[in-house]
Design a protein around this nucleic acid. Structure first.
Lengths: 213, 213
DNA sequence: CGCTGATGACTGAGCGCATAGTCAGTGGAT
DNA sequence: ATCCACTGACTATGCGCTCAGTCATCAGCG
């Protein structure tokens, strides 16, 4: 199961890792995404990277440690995608900032839907202290979304929506797409990002219908 | 791991099943939701129902068969919740029908978030022919949503939205809540259903902002 | 009423197999 | 000569599933 160079997962891991370790993580991402953590054997991961079963333990302490490295690095990359300074640079009104953050969140998850599937759905297999570390990163996503929406509501750009519930909904849209998104479908990651940015603006606008509450 | 009578999962299975078989399915739902299909042992399921390991095979052919029964019955119940005649009875305009269908879909998934988690996230463990049967049921959800939205667009009640993408988004909202919903949180299943019904109406309304496309 | 045989839900023991992880050793690079 | 990424062979454990057997229930029969 050798992966080609265009695999988006291959670029997620950072230079601090040996090339072989990155290959193992990439193989593990595909295995975990397909069969889940417990459904994947350490042999699947190693042979998927073209190595013998024991090679995994040269680079990682355990199978759970492999999952943790994927989750940690994946979450940090996603956070970087939505909170890097250039995302909202020059955007001085909340609607534009909301559009930018939602579009980045969605397009990142679409592009990295395989790795994101592991990051979103396999966390229960982590040990308690590893899980804590991931949860600490995860908390920053709703905080970022909430601050953008709260500012828009305060300034009157948005309707007086329940920020907490809208944030939940926006994160749900971005997360759930990793379950169904396929790169050969009708939408590119960027197109989907723009569409969901439109939806986000709709969701914080007053409803013109007969039941506004 | 005996469950009390208020467990929503206990009421999902129907009268054609022996009481012990229903207890086993209920135990299996909780095991699968917590540890996943491959992370659950047949011993977990049986002893969770207060039985010996071998008792499972009195009522089910295999562990995969247990998952299939959960998925089949769960999907049929959810479909019933959104497409029963009384859901849209007396609602003659598309906005009201959209609200009703979304609210039912969401509140069902919130109330049955544990069983729904199994139905949504464990399908990959099914064999091909069992999976086909579940997929055939699943197809009816987007069809129902699409018909309501298409009618609203045709009649001019809704903005000329891309029905396929809006349907995807609405299903995502209802599905993803099974990942984070907790009964002791701020929203009851019905409150969440009404909120998402509001969002649905927003999503098919014209966007008043500066970037309507 | 009691006796008998059949039925079927359930159990205890265990089989064959796959799994995560180990370790002494190998071979290529420096 | 040293180093270390990597391997082949291995172990202990836990898995899905089976099967002979137990026990409670019940119909048929005298």
């Amino acid at each position: 199961m050798t992966r080609n160079a265009a695999d988006p997962a291959a670029g997620l891991w950072g230079d601090d890792l040996a090339p072989v370790a990155r290959t193992l993580l990439t193989s593990a991402v595909h295995c975990f995404a397909r069969r889940g953590f417990t459904g994947t054997t350490t042999r699947d991961i190693s042979t998927g990277a073209g190595l013998s079963p024991a090679a995994l333990y040269v680079h990682f302490r355990s199978k759970e440690d492999v999952l943790f490295e994927i989750a940690r690095r994946g979450h940090l990359r996603a956070l970087e995608a939505v909170s890097a300074p250039e995302v909202t640079a020059g955007l001085d009104d909340p609607p534009a900032r909301l559009r930018a953050v939602v579009a980045r969140f969605v397009s990142w998850h679409a592009r990295h839907h395989v790795a994101a599937r592991v990051c979103q759905y396999e966390l229960a297999a982590l040990g308690p202290e590893h899980l804590d570390e991931i949860v600490a990163i995860r908390r920053q996503f709703p905080e970022l979304f909430r601050s953008v929406i709260a500012e828009g509501v305060d300034r009157g750009d948005f309707a007086p929506v329940d920020a907490g519930r809208v944030v939940r909904a926006l994160l749900s849209l971005g997360v759930d797409l990793v379950r169904w998104y396929r790169p050969d479908g009708p939408d590119s990651p960027e197109q989907l990002g723009r569409f969901y940015a439109d939806l986000a603006v709709s969701m914080v606008s007053a409803v013109p219908g007969p039941q506004p509450g």
